[in-house]
């Protein structure tokens, strides 16, 4: 406190006018914006992981439904093909297997996506 006041008292006569004052002002503005930037970055780094962290509950539901949906779609396509082409039961068998594979792919992909978002929160998966 006392130091600050003494510094304040000393600055005005020295920096009262002229280009020296401008340079001083620019320097101080620069350091202020730098410290604000640093604080903002710190703040974002602290906030980002928390945002994805609490979603563990949704993660499970999400993976389960991704898996089931692919199987359902595979079965539906196979059944429809069988109806149209009369190839019962081969279409259904084939597309169920494909649907199962697609379900595993879905789960792997979304788990991978979630992992990348969690590990590098500020960059994001811009290229994958």
């Amino acid at each position: 406190m006392e130091n600050d006041r003494r510094a304040d008292g000393r600055v005005p006569p020295a920096a009262g006018s002229g280009p020296k004052a401008d340079a001083d002002l620019a320097r101080r503005l620069d350091s202020l914006s730098r410290s604000l930037d640093a604080e903002q970055r710190e703040h974002e780094a602290a906030a980002a992981p928390r945002r994805t962290d609490t979603r563990g509950f949704s993660l499970g539901i999400r993976l389960a439904s991704e898996f089931v949906a692919a199987i359902v779609v595979g079965a539906a396509i196979g059944w429809g093909l069988d109806k149209l082409a009369g190839t019962t039961p081969w279409g259904m068998i084939g597309f169920l297997l494909l649907g199962f594979a697609a379900g595993v792919l879905n789960v792997m992909r979304s788990a991978e996506k979630m992992a990348t978002i969690e590990t590098k929160p500020d960059t994001g998966p811009d290229e994958d």
């Binding site: 439904s65 949906a69 779609v73 595979g74 594979a101 379900g103 792919l105 992909r109």
Partner: peptide, 24 residues
């Protein structure tokens, strides 16, 4: 085979998206 699986996986998206919200 891979393309067929990828297409199926793509087609399953609206199903999983809608069923998840509705079922919850």
């Amino acid at each position: 085979l891979i393309v067929a699986i990828e297409v199926l996986s793509f087609l399953s998206r609206p199903i999983s998206l809608s069923v998840r919200l509705f079922a919850n």
